[in-house]
Amino acid sequence: METTMHNNDKNWADSGNAICYSGYRAGQSPVHGIFPSALEIGEDLALLQPRWKFLRLYDCTAHAETVLQVIEEQQLDFKVMLGANMTAESSNPNCPWGAHFDEETLASNRIANDREIDRLIALSLRYPDVVFSVSIGNEASVDWSDHLVPVERLVAQTRRLKSAITQPVTFCENYVPWTNKLEPLARELDFISVHTYPVWEYQSIEHAMAFTQQNLQAVIDKNPDKPIVITEAGWTTASNGRGIEPNNASQQLQAIYCRELLNWSREAGILTFIFEAFDESWKGSEDPLEPEKHWGLWTEDRQPKLALQTLFANQG
């Protein structure tokens, strides 16, 4: 299937590779407010710099602020998509692991989300040469989300951002909502950011790229006049069977999918962020084989996985 990025006047895909970056190491997590140091972030960026130009950050915590500071102070050649971490503004009975909140909690979350957008604006204005785009949230409208935000609130936050900063504004979401409920939001955005995960939807490696292309084509067909970016796509290297069969998670499968994904996205001219740079043990359950923990191209102790040996094999 041939897929092209419509009205892509930004030419980002021709400027370098893209990856999602979260620098939490063993014993660190945003949940407990234990963040990587500037030295640790500098070490990570030194690993990423030879092959990656675009980084995606998920929130406006101290972690993001330190990343931006290190990039600017060390004059590193990175461009960052800076995100907002939205909390639930609506309960969601469709969330499999539970997302029911009382009205007091939801009201508090709305205030917290407004403050997160305040920080997003402030950091975008402080680092205009590093932050190349901003996202108003991450997976906050898909049916299974535990941090559901009404579309009208996403529209309002988009308008607020666009009145305050000059960077392009997007929203990062699973491909399905872009084909239906997010039409009012899509009209407001500068470009659409899509997530596609064949392995979460029980696809074999043989069908994975065709599935990714189908996901993206469905979004393009619905939004033909909007530029499209893939902000998450990847393959986990371990699983305990929760949502992903253990035999469908390995370094070999990750290497195959990421190689095919980058080759195709370069040809199609679609900026694509690999999910993700480093494994993160703080995510998911306590089970060490929880699939959420194992999407990195590097392990948590910064050892390269097989994919890194094959992704750039023909590029010197």
Rank of each mutant, 00 (worst) to 15 (best):
F273H: 02
L125H: 13
I256Q: 13
E152G: 01
A88Q: 14
S204F: 05
C20S: 12
W12Y: 10
G316E: 05
L120T: 06
A313N: 05
G243N: 01
H195K: 04
W178E: 05
A64D: 00
I19P: 02
E183T: 05
V176A: 11
S90M: 14
E276Q: 12
W52Y: 09
P288M: 10
T231N: 14
L297P: 01
S15P: 08
K181V: 04
H147Y: 11
V134P: 10
D279N: 10
A99P: 15
Y58K: 00
P184M: 05
P224Y: 00
P93C: 08
W298N: 10
K283C: 03
I111C: 10
D114Q: 13
V151P: 02
E232W: 00
L125V: 12
D44E: 07
P93W: 11
A277R: 00
F101Y: 15
V142H: 13
P227S: 12
Q214G: 07
E89T: 06
E201D: 09
L106I: 15
I117H: 12
S22R: 04
Y202Q: 15
R115T: 13
P96H: 14
A313W: 07
L262A: 04
H63Q: 06
F278L: 11
E286S: 15
V134G: 10
D287R: 06
F171P: 02
Y24W: 12
I121F: 09
L125S: 14
A210N: 09
E116A: 11
E280N: 03
P93Y: 14
D114I: 12
A307V: 11
D287Y: 04
A88C: 11
H6K: 08
E104R: 13
N109Y: 09
E290Q: 10
R159A: 05
D146L: 14
C95A: 15
T179L: 03
L47E: 01
P30I: 02
F273I: 01
S239T: 04
G27F: 06
Q309A: 15
M1H: 14
A64M: 01
I111M: 06
Y175I: 06
G98P: 03
A208Y: 05
N138K: 11
T3Q: 06
E245I: 00
E89Y: 12
F211I: 03
A107Q: 15
C60Y: 08
E104W: 08
T272W: 05
A140F: 09
N17Q: 06
K79M: 05
